[in-house]
């Protein structure tokens, strides 16, 4: 995908959210207008399939070993699970979404990269129970995924 196409896609994305948020932050528009831009139905979806359709337009994306998810095997605290997604081996990445399969509402976040931004993001998420963390990467209209299981345990009783 050419940089131009990527840039167009990105602008489409930012018009829907980022720039508007900035405008709101600067007090230019009122927050009600912004709420419309936030993809409510994707975030309120109860299944991975609906969440993926809502955020990436498809729920049938193939696995891709060029995407790595760095997250603990066992969470130190289910309420604060560090997750890093690295898709820098894929060119022209437009966005990275993070999903926790067994959360009541699986979609956690969607990150839209600018043209000079690496296809990498690091954040911390809440996980109610042991589950796959899924990264959904969109690049020039092609969507692929990776998953990593994170165990959430009661803890205690160690040697």
């Amino acid at each position: 995908m050419s940089t131009d196409t990527k840039r167009r896609l990105f602008l489409k994305g930012t018009l829907a959210s980022g720039v508007v948020a900035l405008a709101a932050g600067a007090g230019l528009i009122n927050p009600r207008q912004v709420l419309a831009a936030w993809p409510k139905s994707a975030f309120e979806a109860k299944s991975v399939s609906e969440a993926m359709k809502g955020i990436a337009g498809t729920d049938t994306a193939a696995g891709n070993d060029k995407i790595t998810i760095k997250a603990p095997d066992i969470a130190e605290n289910g309420a604060v699970v560090p997750v890093k997604v690295d898709a820098t081996k894929i060119s022209g990445v437009d966005s990275i979404a993070i999903i926790a399969e067994k959360n009541p509402t699986p979609l956690i976040a969607n990150f839209k990269m600018g043209k000079s931004t690496h296809a990498f993001v690091s954040t911390r998420i809440k996980m109610g129970k042991t589950s796959n963390v899924i990264a959904v990467v969109s690049a020039g209209g092609s969507v692929s995924t990776a998953r990593k299981e994170v165990k959430v345990t009661i803890g205690g009783c160690g040697g």
Binding site: G18, V19, F43, V81, A109, F111, K112, T123
Partner: peptide
């Protein structure tokens, strides 16, 4: 804009 993010409530308290 270098990064634009949309978040739900499952980003941890005091987001990083």
């Amino acid at each position: 804009s270098v990064l634009a993010a949309e978040w739900g409530g499952a980003i941890s308290t005091n987001p990083y």
